[in-house]
Every structure is written in structure tokens, then in C-alpha cells.
Nucleic acid binder design. Structure first.
Lengths: 209, 209
DNA sequence: GTCTATATCCGGATAGAC
DNA sequence: GTCTATCCGGATATAGAC
């Protein structure tokens, strides 16, 4: 039986699987799981529908694989927030990184958002275990910073939610932002301008006074 | 007005249309336009599939009507931000209201989010015209407040985006929040706690220093 | 490995009885 | 106004030729 991703694969196999996953990320992220069709994924990947099903056993498997990939990249920067660093600097770095990810991989952000909005059927367990642990851990770090007087007293969980909400908004609501701001949102300086504004408000908001 | 061709309707007609729209909001908001089925909407509305199509000509019409309703309620509080009021108080009121809406009508928020995330096929024109005008107008108000030294100098558009992102996050990512915070997020005090944290960070972030 | 059928199912929409 | 029956298009997945 066609095994999972870890079997030995020919060059053409890994290449085509990668093509499919890239196309799938694009289609799933805008149309959602049910709205997406194999036809469109195949088209984007530059191969036939049946060929797509040769490399993956089913539509759901494609979705699942794409989702797993994005989640991995999602956790990493968050887990790197260090209790040893300077609080404001640590958060500045994390927020900047997250904004950059939204700008460079908006589709990954939307795929994740879409999954959560439908009730996270494939990810609920992950959210309740690994993610919860990690958030609890980082919330404790933030609370310690507050106790040490290095940050204004604010609920750590809501701070984390706010950072996620704000940074991901630039990917998930890109259509709305472009509609409102026009071309400027697609030009070079926009990313820096965004980072400056977001960092300014959040960091000011949590600086001890 | 508002485009709804309000023919005379019997009691049972208005009642059933309302039942359908409520069910539709629920289903569309989680499954998206394409993922939703008339079958599920009918089931939720407590009537047969064919009967649903007796009251609405098509699936798209149901979606369109539900979307229009939510957008109306969406604009109103924003348009009420007044240049005459105290800046911090005006924003506090708006943010609080928006948080309340997220808590009380999470489905409306998700329906809107879903539509934007798929590229806003039915709403792009609205976003580029009415919404853009309104945002430009309110951004000018905020800029004036800044010029008068009543707020810290921050890009008004990004401030607005941040408020939207943060407040809507509590509706759109409810699944994730519940997974992380557990039962407490469904208990009484949670809404106040959220409002306090969000207001504290944002208002501190934009207070002149 | 890739293609051309094709089986099968599901969802939206219509027709017509009551 | 509501129901049963049905049509039709589209979508996933499979079979089998090349």
C-alpha cells in the first residue's frame, strides 16, 4: 500500500507531492476544506485530477498534510520566547516575526484560521494538549515578568490572544485591508509601517508605568 | 430600503424566513458558503429542504440576505464614533461594544470573516466604497485627536485594524480560546475580564505620554 | 506514472400531488 | 404551504489502457 510521507520516494514523487501541497495550501486557504475541489488543486499543480489522487490517497489526506505543515511553523517562534530575555525585546521579536509570517505566508495563516473557525475538527486535540501546554508555559513567563515589575499588570492570556489576533489579521483580512488602503498596502514600505504601528501600540500598552 | 424587496408577507412567511435565516447564519458561519448545505440549514430551521426553497429562491439568496443583515449591524457602532467626544472614552465605548457583539453574536462575526477570507466575492464593492469611506472618515477624526495631543501619535488605520482584529478574534477563534482556557471562558465573569484586559492594553498603548 | 473513461454519490433545484 | 419524487450537474474516487 502506498505508505505515508516517510517512505523512500523518487525525485519526481517528492517533487509532485510538493507541487500538490503548495497548490492545496492555496486552494484550501481560500475555499475551505469542503469548498475546495480536487480539480482546482490539480489545475494549480499543473497535473490531472487523477494524477493528484495517485500521489495522495484522498482529498482529506492532502488537507491533513498541508495543515500539519503549517502548524509546525506556527508553533516554533512562539516556543522561542525566552524567560531569560528582556520582556519587551522578546515580545518585540515575536510580534515582528509573526507579522513577517503573515506577510510572507498569508495562505498558511488563512488555512489555520479556517480550520479553527469550523470548530477545528482535525485539530481540536492538538489545541487542547500541545498548544494549551505551550500557552500555559508562556503565560507563566509573562506573569513572572509582571511580578518583577518589568511589564504592566495585564492578563497574560489576553495579551497572547491580542498578539495573535493582530498579527494574523494582516493575513486573514488581507482582502479588506487592500480594499481600504488601496495600492499602498502592496508596496514596499507597508510591512515596516505596519510593524511600527503594531509594536508601538502593544508595547506601549504593556510597558510598566 | 436597504435593498430588501419587502413584499407583503403573511405571519407565517416572515416567521419561516426568519427561522431559515437564523439557521443559515449558524451553518454558513461555520461551514462557509460552499461547505454549507441546504439540508443542514433546513434541519436546523425545522423544515424540509424543499420548503426552504419555497421561501428563498436559491442557496445564494439565503447567504446574501444573511450577509447583508450582519453587515448592517457591523457598521453602525463604528459610524457612531464621534469627533466631539473624548477620544479615549469614544474608543473605550466602541471597543466594549464590539467585544459584546463578539460574545453575543459570534456567528455573525464568523460569517463576515469567512466572506472576507475567501476574497469577499459578494462584498468587495461594499468594502471598497462604503466601508473605505467610513474608515477614511474615522481615521481623519483620530488623526485630529493626535494633532491635538489627545492621543499618542500612531497610524489611525492600523489602530482601527487592531481594534477589529482583537475584538473579532474572540468570536472567530472561540474554539481555540475555549481549548486553551477551558471552562472559565464560558463562565460569567469572562466577558468583563476580557474587556478589562483588551481595553487596558490598547488604551494604554495610545494614551499620550 | 499518466491518461481516459466511468462508477457512485451528493447537493441544489423543479414538478406536481395534496 | 408542505410533501414526495425526481432531474441534473458536479465532485470524489476507481478501473484499466498505454
Amino acid at each position: 500500500m502506498a505508505g505515508t510521507a516517510n517512505k523512500k520516494q523518487s525525485r519526481i514523487q517528492t517533487e509532485n507531492r510538493s507541487l500538490i501541497l503548495t497548490a492545496a495550501l492555496n486552494v484550501f486557504s481560500t475555499d475551505g476544506y469542503r469548498g475546495a475541489t480536487l480539480e482546482r488543486i490539480a489545475e494549480r499543480a499543473g497535473m490531472s485530477k487523477t494524477n493528484v489522487l495517485y500521489y495522495f490517497p484522498s482529498k482529506e489526506e492532502i488537507y491533513h498534510t498541508a495543515l500539519e505543515q503549517t502548524v509546525e511553523g506556527w508553533l516554533e517562534p512562539f516556543s522561542e520566547i525566552s524567560a531569560q530575555g528582556d520582556p519587551v525585546e522578546e515580545l518585540r521579536r515575536y510580534i515582528s516575526l509573526k507579522l513577517q509570517m503573515s506577510a510572507e505566508q498569508p495562505e498558511a495563516s488563512r488555512l489555520f484560521a479556517n480550520e479553527v473557525q469550523r470548530g477545528a475538527p482535525l485539530m481540536l486535540d492538538f489545541l487542547k494538549t500541545r498548544l494549551k501546554s505551550l500557552v500555559d508555559e508562556k503565560a507563566a513567563v509573562i506573569r513572572e515578568w509582571i511580578d518583577q515589575g518589568k511589564l504592566a499588570p495585564v492578563d497574560p492570556y489576553h495579551l497572547i490572544f491580542m498578539i495573535w489576533a493582530t498579527t494574523q489579521h494582516y493575513a486573514d483580512f488581507d482582502t479588506q485591508i487592500v480594499a481600504i488602503l488601496g495600492d499602498q498596502s502592496k508596496q514596499k514600505g507597508f510591512q515596516e509601517q505596519t510593524a511600527h504601528a503594531v509594536l508601538s501600540i502593544i508595547l506601549n500598552g504593556i510597558r510598566p508605568r
